[in-house]
Structure formats: structure tokens, C-alpha cells
Amino acid sequence: MSTEELQAWLRRFAELVHEHKDELTALDSAIGDADHGANLDRGMTAVLAALEEAPPADAAALLKKTGATLVSKVGGASGPLYGTLFLRMAGADTFPAALRAGYEGVLARGKAEPGDKTMVDALGPACDALDAGRSVAEAAQAAAEGRDATVPLVARKGRASYLGERSAGHADPGATSTALLLQAAAETLS
């Protein structure tokens, strides 16, 4: 993972979040509290500004800065979860190992399990694909499929869980933004 590649990845993710801001917010209106698009957009804008202001020396510093900025700027559930994802990625040498470490951090912070209708349902399949030696593009595909698979699920974590059965029939906003994160990776990481 070169610093340049990671920077391109984060820039592309920020773009995708911005383009899909209203869609993420609409999904969150259906089963949550209508803030996911705006919050993540705000967070990624802050990340790009922070990286611009003080360019990190290496990949680990860049990931740490990204995670810390998201924790400091986003709030809600997505701040600690995305923040922890990037903070934990900082220790690894390869993208598959980094994403796996980040995934484990998300599981520990959010206490969600696969099938709870959360970002875990997109991130887990992507990690599995990478660990099986598949390409980043294939991992992005696995994340998108994981996102689609959240549609019929009844949420068991986060605000959507308060809806019970009524949370079924909508894609999870967190899984949707995570699929964007992997899409950005497929477009920018080799």
C-alpha cells in the first residue's frame, strides 16, 4: 500500500460519498435518522482537508490521521465505526491484512455480528474475498452483494433495530457506504 494509492482511494471515496449523499440519507430516512449521507460527507471533507494541511509521512500515518479525523468530526455511530476501521488498518502491511484488522476493530467497537443489517455485512464478505486471494474488484463485488443482501434483513443493531420487522425491505445505509468504500478501492488500488 503506497501513500499515494491510499490517498487516491480516500479521495475517490470522498467523491463517491458526496455523489451518493442524498441516496445514503434517503436510505437512512427509511430506517434510521436521516443523517448518514450528510455526516459521512462532512467527515470525508474534513479528512481531505486534514491530509492536505499536513501531508502524512507514510501509509500508517495517513490511515491514523484519517481515522482520528473521522472520530473527531463525524459523531453518531459512523464516526467511531469508520474511525476505528481506519485506525486499526494502520498497523498492517498489505491491503487485505489492513482491511481484516479494520473489520475486527469494527466488530469490537460496534458489537454487531454478520446478519445484523449493518456495515459488517458488506465489509465481512469483502475481507473474505481478499483473504481468499481474489482481486480488490472482486472484493468490491462481494461488498455490493453483501449490501444487497441486507435488504430483506431485520435490523438488530443501531437505530434501525427499533423498527423491528419494519426495517426489512431497505438496504442498510452503513452497508451501502461500505460498498462505496470498496468500489473506491477497486478503482484506485492495484
Binding site: D35, S72, K73, G75, P80
Partner: peptide, 11 residues
């Protein structure tokens, strides 16, 4: 005080 309907941040 967090953003509207959004938890404040740890800082």
C-alpha cells in the same frame, strides 16, 4: 451538543 440527531464526538 452534537449535530442535529447525531451523537457528539469523543473530543
Amino acid at each position: 451538543a452534537g449535530e442535529v440527531f447525531t451523537s457528539p464526538v469523543p473530543d
